[in-house]
Nucleic acid binder design. Structure first.
Lengths: 187, 187
DNA sequence: GCCGTTCGTGACCAATCGGTGTGAACTCTA
DNA sequence: TAGAGTTCACACCGATTGGTCACGAACGGC
């Protein structure tokens, strides 16, 4: 009884994510979204509500993929792994979508965006902290303040994202990441 | 023979810098600049050329204040000092203007912006590297790869900026910065 | 095969964008 | 004080913004 959409909303959302990821929220126009998603403006509004809601949905879609360090039972291996692939090493230098959003909208008092940012950062920090406690307990890394070191790792990860967006090569970023991790082994 | 401007261009530029610093380039409208600078649109264009040129001038004005680590003869003290004040600890959480610009315009292929970004980053990295060599030679820090550690410090500084914009308190940032510096003492 | 429902194209909306032109107000030289 | 030379407030420009609407096309249940 209903005519099915002749586009895949999930795929369209993924495409929107990548457009926002590249250009940010403000710099992305509806025309750009139309062509990128391959759908008309009406379909876009019927499906996603508005540009703003689409952005929030894209943020949520991005947030579903979490670094391995947030896995239950994560330890030293997962900490290393979190610095091993993904965001910062993107050859397209897109950085981390959350980092980009923090810079663009962090000062705005938009609760919908801010709570998502905060949730992401605390989730990452808690993941690091839990993994660090385990790594310390297992004797994989020396005794140290897990909370402080978790903050240190979050900061380093975000710094790598900025460096990536700034044009630093993946190889160089990896060596910096390695240097960051080395610091934990010698507190 | 000429009627003097009844505003101070230098002060206006400083105000423009702070507006761009807060909101970024795209999100800043001419109307906003008019009210912030306290001058009309025509005066703005007569004095600064265009919105884009004003932005570049603001970037240059910001770039004139350099961290102490770039001073000639800088050593370990200046490295510490570079992590001690300024950008990241701004109670208004504006981050570093260059970091914001890297995120907003880093992927654009705009030579005027990109060269400024690159110049800033390399100048900072070289400052760290020089200071590190001196610190190592003076025995203030253990032997280590100065180039790698300089990159590590740049990354950390940019990470601190993002964290600041994300809402992290100055006190917490300072402890993270301390943790970052500690890592150099134990490579 | 018909009909009600949904989809999507394209025109359209007011608002705002960056940028320009005009003319009155002002300051200084002569 | 006359008038040259600038500055600046304001209106205005076309283009583009995010968002809406109406209508013809495409579909599925009966």
């Amino acid at each position: 009884m209903v005519r099915p959409k002749n586009f895949d909303p999930e795929q369209a959302l993924q495409r929107a994510l990548h457009v926002f990821w590249n250009n940010g929220y403000r710099s992305t126009s509806l025309s750009e979204l139309e062509t990128a998603l391959g759908i008309g403006r009406k379909s876009l509004y019927d499906t996603f509500g508005s540009k703003r809601e689409l952005f929030l949905k894209a943020l949520d879609a991005y947030a579903t993929i979490r670094p391995p360090v947030e896995n239950p039972g994560a330890g030293w291996e997962e900490i290393v792994e979190s610095f091993g692939g993904g965001g910062p090493y993107d050859p397209e230098h897109r950085s981390c979508f959350f980092v980009n959003t923090i810079i663009e909208l962090g000062l705005e008092d938009d609760p919908d965006v801010l709570t998502r940012i905060e949730h992401h950062v605390t989730s990452l920090r808690e993941g690091f902290e839990r993994a660090l406690r385990k790594a310390i307990a297992e004797g994989r890394v020396p005794e140290q303040d897990p909370e402080l070191t978790a903050n240190y790792l979050c900061t380093a990860l975000q710094g790598l994202s900025v460096m990536s967006r700034g044009g630093t090569s993946p190889e160089q970023l990896r060596s910096i990441a390695q240097r960051t991790l080395d610091a934990i082994q010698h507190p």
